[in-house]
Write a protein that binds this DNA or RNA. Structure first.
Length: 283
DNA sequence: CTTACGGCCTGGGTGC
DNA sequence: TGCACCCAGGCCGTAA
């Protein structure tokens, strides 16, 4: 499941080989996950890739028109759960569920594969890009501790929901929310406003450490994730709670539990991460 | 504005 | 062997 570390790994991989390349041709398979497929077929061929960026879980491929004829634009890609963006030889076998092919001017091909098609793709003019991405929260790797704390302590939602909310912080998904809360020893059902300053500082630290370590390990490969060269990540081997239900807590040995919190499957240690006394299921 | 929740996208895996 | 169904995670719409 591509979250911040996986998208960052892909972005770095693409950044190493795509900028400067021209896209010669576009081929589309199924297009129901593309906002305006005709626009991509019409506007992308001939464009030069100028930069690769990550914004939360979004990947941005900046496109420069050759003669400056039309304005610049960006290809906005969200990988959803199972999206893969891989650069390869055009003669390499085409995996099932591959729906977008970009032919590059160096003889390679950029392919988008997505079993579930929960991903999204669209092309946007540079000037409207800001409107589209501006509503997202700060990047958890860029936010200061002070801002992080003031952001969360004013909120009465469950901390798990807040970490998953892309308008609060951008880039954290279910895996890294659970791993961060375990490290910080905070129960996912705690409310943001109930967290003590020390707990908020621990959480800030935990989120950043987990994300940095996951990037270093090139992401978590649970089911479908691979980087831009098709290689698996390694951070799944360092997960402490995610998908470890019933296994022993690495810290205290108690069996890891799984429960639905904020509508999501959540993994935590019932001993290290103390549940709040009254649950907020009032009505 | 904030929060909670249900539904939707799709197909692999599971269990009968 | 076949089939129904559960479920993954992000996101959006709705309601209070």
């Amino acid at each position: 499941m591509p979250e911040l570390p996986e998208v960052e790994t892909i972005a770095r991989g693409l950044r190493a080989s795509l900028p400067g390349r021209r896209i010669l041709n576009v081929r589309l398979g199924k297009t129901d996950f593309i906002e305006d497929p005709a626009a991509i077929e019409r506007d992308v061929p001939g464009m030069r890739l100028s930069a690769i960026r990550r914004h939360g879980k979004f990947l941005l491929l900046d496109l420069q028109s050759p003669a400056g004829s039309t304005g610049n634009s960006s290809l906005l890609i969200h990988l959803g759960m199972t999206g893969r963006l891989v650069v390869c030889d055009p003669n390499a076998p085409v995996p099932p569920h591959t729906h977008v092919f970009f032919t590059l001017d160096d003889g390679r091909e950029l392919r988008y594969t997505d079993v579930r098609r929960f991903g999204r793709m669209r092309i946007l003019k540079t000037d409207v890009l800001q409107d589209r991405l501006g509503s997202l929260g700060l990047d958890p790797l860029e936010i200061s501790e002070t801002d992080f704390i003031s952001l969360l302590k004013a909120r009465h939602a469950q901390i798990k929901a807040l970490l998953l909310d892309q308008h609060v912080l951008r880039g954290i998904g279910n895996i890294y929310a659970d791993e961060s809360l375990w490290r910080a020893r905070i129960h996912p059902r705690r409310l943001g406003a109930s967290l003590k300053p020390e707990e908020l500082r621990r959480l800030y630290r935990a989120v950043r450490d987990v994300l940095h370590e996951a990037i270093e390990a090139r992401g978590s490969s649970i089911a479908d994730y691979v980087d831009s060269e098709g290689n698996l990540g390694g951070f799944q081997r360092r997960h402490r709670v995610y998908q470890r239900e019933g296994k022993k807590c690495f810290r205290c040995g108690a069996p890891i539990r799984r429960a639905i919190v904020a509508g999501r499957s959540s993994h935590f240690c019932p001993r290290c991460q103390r549940a709040p006394r009254s649950r907020p299921t009032n009505r």
